[in-house]
Nucleic acid binder design. Structure first.
Lengths: 351, 351
DNA sequence: TTGTAAGCGTTATCAA
DNA sequence: TTGATAACGCTTACAA
């Protein structure tokens, strides 16, 4: 391998000068700079990133740590998230380092990352209601940004969508269509946004004097299979839900399948609405019955998060980097009025 | 930050001894080792990975470089691939480094990776028919493994599926059902496996004296949208295809949608078969009409590739690390005989 | 504008 | 079994 010293010797210069020339220091003369870069190219010189990191204390790398059997890695949303993240990080000449640690060892691995100099900052995804990773990061004031936020008011940089607004709008739409037996198909318990969405849902129902029985709420992976399973089970209840509110478009896909078996027409017999992260390969407008959604492209999140972490690392105040994106309500054909006198006996569950 | 020196001073030992104790060298006495690891824990010592890398010349990192507007990053298959990769790499205590480079600058960035010491090995995905990245890697004898292979006989480590066998089986099945107008919905041109699949398809047809007109073959992203668009266009042809062979289950999903519009029953009026990478959130057995597929879980690939790259880095001969996984044919309801006297005029395209 | 030299935190090669 | 000491390749005061 060609080293800085090789280039220096070749030119009869000192390594320091070569380093300065290559790194664009202003004191270097124009002709020297040209000579140096020519020689570097000629000799095929590439700086050793480990040496540079050791000397500067910067790695140019942002880390993410996953749980060993992480949901997020099995989450199809994640690909799109990743795409945006990487492209944007490339603009800051940064790379992304993936690390997997068992659920019980998360904190140890976070500590190792913070102390080893392997990364300049961390990206935290799917924060939990009480997130110890965030606490650890905060305690060491290590640079990080969060996708979502674990509480209402926080002091770190984050990008979140307006989960409350989205769920409120979705629930109101169903209420306005006359639904009172609304099921919520949500994500896994313990995640902050799952909780936030549920809170908004419950509150909005309460505003109209309604409560939802626990059997009308499910917590599961946000995939097609889980949507099918949960919806199938709920459809056997008497009375059954007349509407399904799903935390993800994949869940809604499963609901569609569950509704097909008893031949309940989507949007007529039963309404379905979902939150849509806008995955390029999963267009909700092209579902068999176009799906009513609350919409917030997950790609927006990743692009902004990548820009943010670069800024946090650069020393910008994290509190100035807090974004809550609003969410659109897109009404399509999967939502409609409660059918008058359906075959299911009506039973009020008003308080 | 606590350094090795700190621990050494604290114990009245030399850094060398502490290093040896912590790294499990045999010459260190049992009591010393215990003392050292206790002190290390007490002082919260974490080795600086950059210093270690510089000293050892090893990074413990495997790299992947994507094209800036990479297909693979928008590819939902990729999430599952990544999941397997990371979990398995964790077993070798390695991490994955993601880097994005514009299409035209791939080779420069590969060179940089090889020379900078940032990674110990590379993972190459979606090889092209003539792949310069592979040539560069080979030329420097830098450790790498390939998902797929760019030619029949190669000298590097790879994990591939039996594309030829899969396509041959799929095509034969359709032929045995009496189909002669078979459309192929394939991936983007230039990729090795796309070519390999097409070759097998064409050859198998030729064995029965059939040719497929170019309009019956499409090359596109392997998503639902593309499947819909291609199938829709082909269905307008006279005569139209009676069967669709898709390179991915997502394409098949789009074909289903295209078939729904003219109300052509899947498996009755028109047959559909696809290659299935077995994505957890996209179960082909649960399609509206269960899909006939050639099946090879992409997760197998990633797990094996991760194990392989670790071995290549460890110095094992790449030629001993070449796996071609066989593919299952799973016949379900989306394939059937050509309907007798359909509304579309029959027109032989036998040679 | 350039050179000298120290230092980044390890590992590895000698001796002891 | 342990300790000096020299790399590893770069950056960065400080001097010139």
């Amino acid at each position: 391998m060609t080293t800085l010293k090789d280039v220096a010797q070749y030119l009869g210069l000192s390594p320091a000068t070569v380093s300065r020339a290559l790194n664009g220091f202003p004191e270097v003369g124009a002709k020297t700079r040209i000579r140096v870069s020519a020689a570097a190219k000629e000799l095929g010189y590439t700086p050793n990133s480990n040496a540079r990191r050791l000397a500067t204390g910067k790695s140019g790398v942002v880390g993410m740590i996953f749980r060993a059997t992480s949901n997020i890695l099995v989450d199809p949303h994640f690909t799109d998230f990743l795409a945006g993240l990487c492209s944007q990080l490339a603009n800051s000449e940064m790379d992304l380092l993936f690390h997997v640690a068992p659920p019980g060892q998360q904190l140890i691995h976070y500590a190792r990352f913070m102390n080893s100099g392997a990364v300049d900052g961390m990206l935290v995804s799917a924060p939990e209601i009480e997130d110890q990773r965030i606490e650890a990061l905060l305690a060491r004031s290590f640079p990080f940004v969060v996708h979502g936020r674990h509480a209402k008011d926080v002091s770190y940089a984050y990008f979140d969508i307006d989960n409350d607004g989205a769920m409120t709008a979705a629930t109101r739409l169903l209420l306005d269509f006359g639904h009172t037996r609304i099921a919520l198909l949500n994500g896994p318990k313990g995640l902050a946004y799952v909780d936030q969405r549920e809170t908004a849902f419950v509150r909005t129902l309460a505003e109209r004097g309604l409560v939802t029985p626990p059997v009308f709420v499910s917590h599961d992976e946000m995939g097609e299979e889980a949507g099918y399973a949960s919806a199938s089970a709920m459809l056997k209840l008497k009375p059954r839900p007349t509407a399904f509110l799903c935390s993800s478009s994949l869940l809604a896909l499963g609901v569609y399948r569950a509704l097909a078996e008893p031949n309940l027409e989507v949007g007529k017999k039963v309404s379905v609405i979902a939150h849509d992260d806008v995955l390029p390969h999963m267009r909700t407008e092209h579902f068999a019955v176009p799906l009513t959604v609350t919409r917030a492209p997950i790609r927006d999140a990743s692009v902004q998060l990548a820009a943010m972490i670069a800024e946090v690392i650069a020393g910008i105040d994290p509190k100035s980097l807090q974004v809550t994106e609003s969410v659109d309500l897109v009404v399509r054909d999967s939502t409609g009025s409660v059918p008058a006198g359906g075959e299911t006996p009506w039973q009020s569950i008003r308080k």
